[in-house]
Amino acid sequence: MTTAIFAFYLFATVLLVAAVMVISARNPVHSVLWLIVCFFNAAGLFLLLGAEFLAMLLVIVYVGAVAVLFLFVVMMLDIDFATLRSGTARYLPLGLAVAGVILAELLLATSGWVGGDGAGLATTLASAPEGMSNTQWIGSQLYTRYLFVFQAAGLVLLVSMIGAIVLTHRQRIGTKRQDISAQVARTPASAVHTAKPALGQGVEL
C-alpha cells in the first residue's frame, strides 16, 4: 500500500509542477512539452485507480496524437515574445477572476456530490465482475447501457470533423494532380506508336 501512496504523491506532484510550468515557461514549445508531461502523469494516476484501459487511452489519444499536432502547430508559429508578454499586467486580474470562479465551482461541485445518488452510479462504479477485465467491463457498459450517448458523442465528433475539413479545404487552381490508376492502366498501345517518317518529313505527334 505504501508503494501506491508513494506513487500517487509522485505522480500528483510531478503533474502539478508540470502544470505550473505549462503556464510559466517562456517558450511555447516548452509549454507543450510540459503539457505532455502532465498528460503522462495523469495516465499514471489512472493506472493507480486500476483503470488501465483509460490510462492507455489517455496516452494514445492525448500524448500520441493531440499533443503531437499541438507541438506541430506551435513549432511552426512565428511568435514575438515581447508583444505576448506586454499585456500581462492588464489581463492578470481578469484571468485570476476566471480561475477563482472555476476553483469555487469545482469545490462546490465536489463537496456537494453524493456517490450513487439517483443515476445508479454505485452499481456502475463498482469494480469489474469476476472473470472480466477492465476493458471488457467498460465495453459492456458503453455499448449497452450508454449506447445512445456513445453514438451521439460520435455524431458530434463527425460533425466537427466535417466542419474542420470544410473550413480548411481549398481548391488550388493550376496544380497538376497525379492519377495513379490512370498511370497504372497505361499500356504500350495507348502510350507509344511507331512512325516511319519519310526523308525531310516531321513526325505527327
Partner: peptide, 14 residues
C-alpha cells in the same frame, strides 16, 4: 499486462 497491445500502441505512438 491485460492491455498489452494498447501498451505497445501507446509507447510506439510516443
Amino acid at each position: 499486462l491485460n492491455v498489452g497491445l494498447l501498451y505497445v500502441f501507446a509507447v510506439s505512438s510516443m
